[in-house]
Nucleic acid binder design. Structure first.
Lengths: 102, 102, 102, 102
DNA sequence: ACCGTGGTTAGCTTTC
DNA sequence: GAAAGCTAACCACGGT
């Protein structure tokens, strides 16, 4: 269960992406670990790219006159389950009345 | 304070372009806004999918004996390395421009 | 989902102070909640003040010729150094515990 | 204007907090810069402490049964200018009706 | 003087 | 239930 983690890549202090020489990965499980890490980093790159796309869409909308803040709120509202939203609002109202904010 | 309905694209000075939708979902810019919203929601779906992929990779790694917590920290440290390097370079540039070396 | 009115602390030890609002503010825990809210708002005021102090320091430094942007980056890098060091040590501990060296 | 920034602490790659020997700060303006940096870091420590206090208050409130999420929302609402809030809600309603969400 | 950008802070989700 | 990582909102600054 713990065999792989026993490989000590940390001892290399060498986390560069370019590193891929076949046997200096630190041990038996090192290459396999490195493979996972690379898959993870690849996915995170894609996620970052997607987030940039999102920003571009918002920017385009802003460019034709829409209010980005409002759009975000709209998207957020649409994502919210109607029931959940109602419950939260009810709870909020309750608290508000409790301190006389109604 | 400053935002008002004027942010609605239709209400702005209609330059060369004039309003195209004859009648829409309750407002002139509604269809256009809706189109943006849908693009946004599409991208967010993709992002969510990607995040699920990430979770799967971690789960798979865990399945073959790696320690997820350690992996996350490694990824994080690698990212910090990259950021630190980039930021240090930026700082150098700042200094250079500050003394007119650019 | 799980929150409901039951989270309202009904502990009604009516201490010295009693309800002053003309009509009951709607719940037993209202005063207590209000007390928390006020403590929170007090702390946030202090925080805001501190942030203004920070801005003043930067302004003063700028006034004698330092480059604010550079200073901010320096501070940031110094913070990163500390964090990186700490996290690396944590990672080491993780590895050690992973192979039973703790 | 640029005299001070010409001191190159970066070239030392030595941003440790402990560093304070009187004359190796890198140049004429170095000590002065260091003094500013220390003032800044001191203020940021205080700010961090304040933020921890805040967390403690929330934790205490939670401990006696209040819902932290709701409390945060309350504080946020109270901070909001009534006018601004009304305007924003009006705008939101407008957008919502524009896409038929009303 | 305004817009765009980057950095900071707060809130939310997920993890342990 | 606590802690951390991630995401989103906010704000101040510099450029144009």
């Amino acid at each position: 269960m713990t065999e792989n983690v026993a490989t000590f890549p940390v001892s290399e202090d060498n986390h560069d992406k370019q590193e891929q020489s076949p046997k200096d990965t630190g041990g038996i499980g090192g290459q396999r670990l490195m493979s996972f890490i690379e898959r993870i980093e690849r996915l995170e790159e894609e996620k970052t790219a997607l987030m940039e796309d999102l920003k571009e869409v918002y920017a385009e909308a802003k460019g034709v006159g829409f209010d980005v803040k409002v759009m975000r709120k709209l998207v957020s509202l649409r994502k919210m389950d109607a029931e959940k939203r109602r419950e939260t609002e009810e709870l909020l109202d309750l608290y508000k009345s409790a301190i006389g904010m109604m």
